[in-house]
Lab assay of single mutants.
Amino acid sequence: SDIKVHVGDITVELHNVSEEFARLVEEALRLGLNEEQAKEWAHKALH
């Protein structure tokens, strides 16, 4: 599904992702990663 993740003043739109993936992206953003890094990190975490 499509999910918007908000962290501080950052909003990341995720398309066709699981809630778990979105949660991992949100966690990575909170750790200070940028959007691209957060998506990559979440992807690796799920595989």
Rank of each mutant, 00 (worst) to 15 (best):
Ser1Ile: 15
Ser1Cys: 04
Ser1Gly: 13
Ser1Ala: 14
Ser1Lys: 15
Ser1His: 15
Ser1Asp: 10
Ser1Leu: 15
Ser1Phe: 14
Asp2Leu: 15
Asp2Arg: 12
Asp2Thr: 15
Asp2Ala: 15
Asp2Met: 15
Asp2Val: 15
Asp2Ile: 15
Asp2Pro: 14
Asp2Gln: 12
Ile3Leu: 09
Ile3Arg: 11
Ile3Glu: 05
Ile3Pro: 06
Ile3Asp: 06
Ile3His: 15
Ile3Tyr: 11
Lys4His: 11
Lys4Ser: 13
Lys4Val: 15
Lys4Phe: 04
Lys4Ile: 15
Lys4Asp: 11
Lys4Met: 11
Lys4Pro: 08
Val5Ile: 14
Val5His: 08
Val5Gln: 06
Val5Ser: 06
Val5Pro: 05
Val5Asp: 06
Val5Leu: 13
Val5Asn: 06
His6Ala: 15
His6Tyr: 01
His6Ile: 15
His6Phe: 01
His6Gly: 10
His6Met: 10
His6Arg: 15
His6Asp: 08
His6Thr: 15
Val7Gly: 09
Val7Lys: 03
Val7Trp: 15
Val7Ile: 10
Val7Leu: 09
Val7Ala: 09
Gly8Ile: 04
Gly8Cys: 08
Gly8Tyr: 00
Gly8Pro: 07
Gly8Thr: 06
Gly8Leu: 03
Gly8Glu: 09
Gly8Val: 04
Asp9Gln: 13
Asp9Asn: 14
Asp9Glu: 13
Asp9Arg: 05
Asp9Cys: 08
Asp9Ser: 14
Asp9Ile: 09
Asp9Gly: 15
Asp9Val: 10
Ile10Arg: 08
Ile10Ser: 08
Ile10Pro: 05
Ile10Asn: 07
Ile10Gln: 09
Ile10His: 09
Ile10Met: 12
Thr11Gly: 03
Thr11His: 10
Thr11Glu: 11
Thr11Ile: 14
Thr11Trp: 09
Thr11Arg: 04
Thr11Ala: 04
Thr11Ser: 11
Thr11Val: 15
Thr11Tyr: 12
Thr11Leu: 12
Val12Leu: 06
Val12Gln: 04
Val12Phe: 01
Val12His: 08
Val12Met: 06
Glu13Arg: 07
Glu13Val: 15
Glu13Gly: 08
Glu13Ala: 09
Glu13Cys: 04
Glu13Pro: 04
Glu13Phe: 01
Glu13Met: 03
Glu13Asp: 13
Leu14Thr: 05
Leu14Lys: 05
Leu14Arg: 04
Leu14Val: 06
Leu14Pro: 06
Leu14Glu: 06
His15Leu: 07
His15Trp: 02
His15Cys: 06
His15Gly: 08
His15Val: 12
Asn16Met: 05
Asn16His: 12
Asn16Gln: 11
Asn16Thr: 06
Asn16Tyr: 06
Asn16Leu: 04
Val17Phe: 05
Val17Leu: 05
Val17Asp: 07
Val17Ala: 11
Val17Cys: 06
Val17Trp: 08
Val17Glu: 07
Ser18Gly: 09
Ser18Gln: 06
Ser18Phe: 07
Ser18Arg: 08
Ser18Asp: 07
Ser18Trp: 04
Glu19Thr: 12
Glu19Cys: 09
Glu19Met: 13
Glu19Phe: 10
Glu19Trp: 10
Glu19Asn: 11
Glu19Gly: 10
Glu20Ala: 13
Glu20Trp: 09
Glu20Cys: 04
Glu20Ile: 12
Glu20Phe: 12
Glu20Gln: 14
Phe21Met: 03
Phe21Gln: 01
Phe21Asp: 00
Phe21Lys: 00
Phe21Ser: 00
Phe21Thr: 01
Ala22Asn: 04
Ala22Pro: 01
Ala22Leu: 06
Ala22Trp: 09
Arg23Tyr: 07
Arg23Val: 08
Arg23Ser: 08
Arg23Asp: 04
Arg23Pro: 00
Arg23Lys: 14
Leu24Gly: 02
Leu24Ser: 02
Leu24Tyr: 11
Leu24Trp: 07
Leu24Cys: 02
Leu24His: 04
Val25Tyr: 09
Val25Leu: 05
Val25Met: 05
Val25Pro: 00
Val25Gly: 00
Glu26Ser: 09
Glu26Ile: 10
Glu26Trp: 04
Glu26Pro: 00
Glu26Phe: 08
Glu26Gln: 10
Glu27Lys: 13
Glu27Val: 12
Glu27Gln: 15
Glu27His: 14
Glu27Pro: 00
Glu27Trp: 10
Ala28Asn: 02
Ala28Ser: 02
Leu29His: 02
Leu29Asp: 00
Leu29Gln: 02
Leu29Tyr: 03
Leu29Ile: 08
Leu29Val: 03
Leu29Cys: 02
Arg30Thr: 09
Arg30His: 12
Leu31Ser: 13
Leu31Gln: 13
Leu31His: 11
Leu31Phe: 10
Leu31Cys: 11
Leu31Gly: 08
Leu31Ala: 14
Leu31Pro: 00
Gly32Pro: 00
Gly32Val: 00
Gly32Ser: 01
Gly32Gln: 01
Gly32Ala: 01
Leu33Asn: 02
Leu33Ile: 03
Leu33Ser: 02
Leu33Gln: 03
Leu33Thr: 01
Leu33Met: 15
Asn34Arg: 03
Asn34Gln: 04
Asn34Ser: 13
Asn34Met: 03
Asn34Pro: 08
Asn34Ile: 02
Glu35Arg: 04
Glu35Cys: 04
Glu35Tyr: 10
Glu35His: 06
Glu35Val: 13
Glu36Asn: 11
Glu36Arg: 11
Glu36Val: 12
Glu36Trp: 08
Gln37Thr: 04
Gln37Gly: 05
Gln37Met: 10
Ala38Thr: 00
Ala38Lys: 00
Ala38Glu: 00
Ala38Ser: 06
Ala38Ile: 01
Ala38Gly: 01
Ala38Tyr: 00
Ala38Trp: 01
Ala38His: 00
Ala38Asn: 00
Ala38Asp: 00
Lys39Tyr: 12
Lys39Met: 14
Lys39Asn: 04
Lys39Val: 12
Lys39Pro: 05
Lys39Trp: 12
Glu40Arg: 10
Glu40Ala: 11
Glu40Ile: 07
Glu40His: 11
Glu40Asn: 08
Glu40Met: 09
Trp41His: 14
Trp41Gly: 04
Trp41Gln: 12
Trp41Cys: 07
Trp41Arg: 15
Trp41Lys: 13
Trp41Val: 13
Ala42Arg: 00
Ala42Ser: 01
Ala42Asp: 00
Ala42Pro: 02
Ala42Gly: 01
Ala42Glu: 00
Ala42Ile: 03
Ala42Val: 02
Ala42His: 00
His43Thr: 13
His43Ser: 11
His43Gly: 07
Lys44Phe: 07
Lys44Val: 14
Lys44Asp: 14
Lys44Trp: 09
Lys44Asn: 15
Lys44Ile: 07
Lys44Glu: 14
Ala45Leu: 11
Ala45Tyr: 14
Ala45Gln: 15
Ala45Cys: 08
Ala45His: 15
Leu46Cys: 03
His47Phe: 03
His47Glu: 12
His47Thr: 11
His47Asp: 09
His47Met: 12
His47Asn: 12
His47Cys: 14
